[in-house]
């Protein structure tokens, strides 16, 4: 093989520019692989950790219908985590390594899951706002250049639409209920609004890695573009429910057709990312506990498979 790296990179870029997807076994620049492993594994961890704040309300859902729906939603999040771990594995990292990175505190996951779910309305707010923001981001990622990630995103987006609607249904119901219920919905919106805005990532001016990730179509739109789309979709939904967005500077720009928000408080975002959010410690403890308590199940499954195999060999 005399083809040099520069030439390989040129061909790789050409392929991306012409809109072709990159598949697992194809040549790719080391940094493309690294960036994707980082992104996809963080995304997978977010799905898994994201089960915790919602799981908190499964036993206390206000009706059997709500409980069945919430169970199905949390199960979907587990499924999303699994699709994404598989997508990351196609890049040559194995699942155990990723899980260990999470448990050892070396891997990041979405900052938003470090906030507590204090009332039932928070379950509505998560589906409506957090999943709403996730859909906007993931619809963008579905257009990305890496085939396995893009296909996982397509699948996930379809399922997130249910999450988004069920969340809005909860919020809308509360907002149109008793004054206390309306207050619950407003309170949830007040607490989840800014973290949802922030979860779409640092502003373009602050964002590292963006030139390369855009050129390689790992991302096809910037954080601020995606954030604006989320805002434009969500503000009218809040108003339709009779709720107000907790931002005194929010205004509609007639000329641009966009909702403009006030300044984002980034200090808090970086604090939460660094591990100083309200629930970082608790979330990691819960993951550690699940890992430890599930160990015997995995061992039993492995032992059973081994025994079956040796029986088959004896029979043969």
């Amino acid at each position: 093989m005399t083809t040099d790296i520069k030439e390989m990179e040129r061909r790789f870029q050409e392929k991306i520019d012409s809109g072709l997807k990159i598949e697992a076994k194809e040549w790719m620049p080391e940094n493309y692989r690294k960036q994707l492993i980082r992104m996809i594994s963080q995304h997978a961890h977010s799905e898994i950790v994201g089960m915790l704040p919602e799981g908190n309300w499964i036993t206390r859902a206000p009706s059997l219908r709500r409980k069945a729906v919430l169970l199905a939603k949390v199960q979907d999040e587990a499924g999303h985590g699994l699709y994404l771990y598989s997508a990351a594995e196609t890049l040559g990292i194995d699942r155990q390594t990723m899980i260990n990175q999470l448990l050892e505190g070396k891997a990041k996951y979405s900052s938003i899951f470090n906030y507590p779910t204090l009332s039932w309305a928070d379950i509505g707010a998560i589906g409506w706002l957090v999943d709403g923001a996730a859909i906007v981001n993931q619809t963008m990622l579905a257009r990305g250049s890496y085939g396995p990630y893009s296909r996982a995103m397509v699948r996930i987006c379809k399922e997130e639409s249910f999450h988004n609607r069920q969340g809005y249904e909860i919020i809308y119901g509360l907002a149109n209920g008793s004054p206390e219920q309306k207050q619950m919905a407003q309170d949830a919106l007040n607490r989840w609004w800014w973290p949802s805005i922030q979860m779409l990532g640092p502003s373009d001016a602050q964002s590292k890695n963006s030139e390369e990730t855009m050129r390689w179509k790992i991302k096809v739109e910037s954080n601020d573009t995606v954030r604006q789309r989320f805002i434009d979709r969500t503000v009218p939904q809040a108003h339709a429910a009779g709720l107000s967005i907790p931002d005194p500077d929010l205004k509609f720009n007639e000329e641009s057709g966009h909702w403009e928000i006030g300044e984002i408080e980034w200090t808090e975002f970086y604090q939460v990312i660094k591990g100083h959010g309200p629930c970082n410690h608790k979330r990691m403890q819960a993951r550690q506990k699940a890992e430890n308590e599930g160990k015997w199940v995995r061992e039993a499954a492995a032992a059973y498979a081994k025994k079956q195999k040796s029986r088959q060999q004896i029979a043969a």
Partner: peptide, 11 residues
Amino acid sequence: AGSVHAHDAEM
């Protein structure tokens, strides 16, 4: 459709 981890075919 994708992949899964499992110890045997049934699982």
